[in-house]
Each structure stands twice: as structure tokens, then as C-alpha cells.
């Protein structure tokens, strides 16, 4: 199988280049990550992040044939059907450190900016805080986020304003804590987001929904944040 992969090592290269690899796959190689590992066996200078190889850790997000996704749950058979050469590039919009490894500081900075933790200063009871199954259900589709950055780095608004726009991943998590009935700071959270840059850079083009490897829907969560803002304003 033929791959064309973005290569850049600041120690050696003056500028990025695309390198071809022709790899003989074994029958046990099912996912793109298996192929990348095989490429690395042949060329140990090729660098990428990977860990759980089952789509829960979020390490191996990359741009695959023009679309962001996780290498470990992208089937080689599906890629073969897309064309003779598989093109692999780092996630767009973030600084490249080396090959497919990008600097994700900006992404995590935005995640941290929404105060990603439950705040409840009422003295806790001896046992768990109660939450009805219905209230808990509100968190479904939110807490499952693996912070892989596929969504935020597919969002043009995040490309243009990564320092100011929270981005789909951050906003999805913002709503995860807004929606949690145990959190007491929903108003402060809404204040934190009511800003033309932080929230309203989202123009609902839904690239984020299209690429999310966990099938989450940041656009819907952003819509719910806006609903709450309207509710408390009018």
C-alpha cells in the first residue's frame, strides 16, 4: 500500500516535505496505525504520537486524506477504497514540532480556560451528591470527549483565532460542566463565554461534527450554550 506522509524534522530539514512509502501489509494490519507502526519499523526517523490503539486516549489524531481522524480506528480497507495513495499530514492549524507531532499547547490552553472541573462549594454530604438518571443523561455526548483535537483543528474559526476562540472541543467541555447539575457556577461559566471571540466565532459550519471520532456534536452543545444565554437575557 502506498502512503505519502508529511515529514519535517527541524534538526535536519529546512522545510517540510512529502515522502512516499510503499509498505507490504500483513493480514493482521487492519487500521492505519498498524501501517504507520510498520513504516516506523523501516524508517525509525518517522515520528508520531500513539498510545492506546483503540480510540480512547486521543494521541494519534492526524489529517488523513484531507480529513482529521484517529489513525488507530481508521480502517485501511476504507482508505484503500479512497484512492491509490493515502496522504497523511499533521493536524492543521497547530505548529508542527516534528513530522506528525504538533504543539497542542494552544488547544489545551483553551480547554483550561473554561475551568474544566465541577465547582461546588457547598460542604459535601457523607455520601454521594444525588443526581437523577435524567440529569446524568444530560452529560452523555459531552463527557466522552477524548481531547484529540480533531474538531478544533478542523474549524476555520479556530485556525484564524486559536488564541481567542475557545474552539469546538473547549466549548463542548464548557457545556459538559454547565449541564452538570452538581456544578454551582453556571452563571460564571456563561459570563466566561459571552464574548464575540470566545463563543461567537462559531458560525455553525459543523466541520467539528463531521470529523469527531467519538461521534460527538460540539455544534449542538454550542447551540445549547447560546440557548441558555438567551434564556437568561430575555
Amino acid at each position: 500500500m502506498r502512503f505519502q506522509i508529511y515529514r519535517y524534522n527541524p534538526d535536519v530539514d529546512t522545510k517540510p516535505r512529502m515522502q512516499f512509502y510503499d509498505i507490504a501489509l500483513e493480514p493482521t494490519d487492519r487500521m492505519l496505525l498498524d501501517a504507520l507502526v510498520r513504516i516506523k519499523m523501516e524508517d525509525d526517523t518517522f515520528s508520531f504520537r500513539r498510545s492506546c490503539r483503540e480510540g480512547v486516549c486521543g494521541s494519534d489524531a492526524m489529517n488523513i486524506n484531507g480529513k482529521n481522524g484517529l489513525a488507530c480506528i481508521t480502517k485501511l480497507a476504507d482508505l484503500e477504497a479512497q484512492g491509490p495513495v493515502v496522504q497523511i499530514r499533521p493536524l492543521p492549524g497547530l505548529p508542527v514540532i516534528r513530522d506528525l507531532i504538533v504543539d497542542m499547547s494552544q488547544f489545551f490552553k483553551q480547554y483550561h480556560s473554561i475551568k474544566p472541573y465541577v465547582v461546588n462549594d457547598t460542604p459535601p454530604p457523607e455520601t454521594e451528591r444525588l443526581q437523577s438518571p435524567e440529569d446524568r443523561e444530560e452529560l452523555n455526548g459531552l463527557y466522552e470527549c477524548i481531547l484529540c483535537a480533531c474538531c478544533s483543528t478542523s474549524c476555520p474559526s479556530f485556525w484564524w483565532n486559536p488564541d481567542k476562540f475557545v474552539g469546538p472541543a473547549g466549548l463542548l467541555q464548557a457545556y459538559r460542566f454547565i449541564a452538570d447539575t452538581r456544578d454551582e457556577t453556571v452563571n460564571a461559566r456563561l459570563d466566561n463565554l459571552e464574548d464575540p471571540y470566545r463563543l461567537f466565532r462559531c458560525h455553525s459550519i459543523m466541520n467539528c461534527v463531521d470529523v469527531c471520532p467519538k461521534n460527538l456534536n460540539p455544534t449542538k452543545a454550542i447551540g445549547k450554550i447560546k440557548d441558555l444565554l438567551i434564556k437568561r437575557t430575555v
Binding site: Y117, N120, E128, S132, P133, D180, D183
Partner: peptide, 12 residues
């Protein structure tokens, strides 16, 4: 109490 999203029973 830290915010772990455990599944719930009907009694919360």
C-alpha cells in the same frame, strides 16, 4: 464529589 459522571439509579 470531584465531579465524576457516574451512572445513576432512580434514587439518584
Amino acid at each position: 464529589h470531584y465531579g465524576m459522571p457516574f451512572d445513576r439509579l432512580d434514587n439518584g
